[in-house]
Design a protein around this nucleic acid. Structure first.
Lengths: 196, 196
DNA sequence: GCGAGATGGTACCCATGGGTTCGATCTCGG
DNA sequence: CCGAGATCGAACCCATGGGTACCATCTCGC
């Protein structure tokens, strides 16, 4: 299915198609994927890819940014769903558990990219984790935690830890549930000691 | 400093030297390091490297196995140092904090390798985390936790989470300390609810 | 001192893969 | 209906890097 076969020949759409395919293929097979294979998968020519992204490094950067935006967006939505902070946190961890248990789960795409290409993805990973931490801090603050940023740091550690461990775990669901239990226990402990 | 310049020309020693250098260089720059550069760094010829390790993949495998053995060994020693379980756990996390704060800290070499070459290092990472979990389970059991394997899973998540987050954190020490606090809190909670 | 095995150094082979170029084709706005 | 821009496909260029071959040299045990 070529990018522009009988279709609208829309550059923006072409770019989006390539970006989506790259995001998927890079996640599944690593950033070492040859551009040629990406082209074959998406039915695009190398010239088109390089016209839209300049270089493979540019493509990698675009992929990571896109991924981070989507993850944070989805997370923000999940965090706004529940009424009380505990429920919102539980919702976030429930989503996490489901994700970890997916058969083609392969860890955090952003941190994976940072490992493979720290020059490009390292700073993006820092930004990503910063956004993540800010989001969790909001929840911790709403819950009335004594030290919101500290609790948020612990929650972030639990999330990323579960993401890392589940990848090489025979029972990823159990790992996710353990993280969830720990998160709720820490939230409880943090709110008990201070005022409601 | 060539491997066998005026020295003992001992194959085992040569192998160990190459392995140590590869472990260091792979950690700092990733597994993409050309064999040629490793040779230049250690003063060995490619022929020697390939005679000892067969292929670059063989070298990578040997490096990861070596690293896992050393980490588990060091950890076992740290876990046997303290008297009571809480102290042993605190010692493990204290070491962790120091490690995370090192200037050239770059995350867990084994999980990094698994990200770059899951075909080789993936199974080794699973084994590594299994060993880690077993070790923590021992501590949790000694501490009288209600669910030793569950608590151990949480502790492992905290450790690996801190390792992952600290890598892209402007304040890695704070991240390590947060993980330590969380670990001790979870240990306390887990032992309070059951009998001493 | 002498032969076997280990090593360094170098040159080499070749597959891979990023990036470019060019011509033919297609779509769309004017 | 026609030109501008987008696209495909394929050929091409070239740097990189894994792996091999060869040779001189060195060490060590006999």
């Amino acid at each position: 299915m070529p990018v522009a076969a009988g279709e609208s020949l829309d550059p923006a759409r072409t770019r989006a198609t390539i970006l989506a395919a790259a995001e998927d293929l890079f996640y599944r097979g690593g950033l070492g994927l040859p551009v040629k294979e990406l082209c074959a998968a998406v039915g695009a020519s190398k010239e088109t890819v390089y016209r839209h992204f300049g270089s493979k490094d540019g493509l990698i950067q675009a992929v990571v940014v896109s991924r981070s935006d989507r993850v944070i967006g989805k997370l923000t939505a999940a965090a706004e769903a529940g009424a009380d902070p505990a429920a919102r946190l539980a919702a976030i961890f429930a989503d996490l558990v489901d994700w970890l248990a997916e058969p083609d789960y392969l860890g955090c795409a952003i941190l994976n990219a940072a490992t493979e290409r720290s020059d490009i993805a390292g700073p993006l990973a820092t930004t990503h984790l910063g956004r993540y931490h800010r989001l969790l801090t909001g929840i911790a603050r709403d819950a009335g935690a004594a030290d919101p940023t500290g609790l948020a740091r612990q929650l972030l550690i639990l999330i990323e830890g579960a993401i890392a461990v589940a990848r090489h775990d025979p029972d990823p669901r159990a790992t996710g549930l353990s993280a969830k239990d720990a998160a709720l226990a820490l939230l409880r402990a943090s709110t008990e000691s201070s005022g409601t």
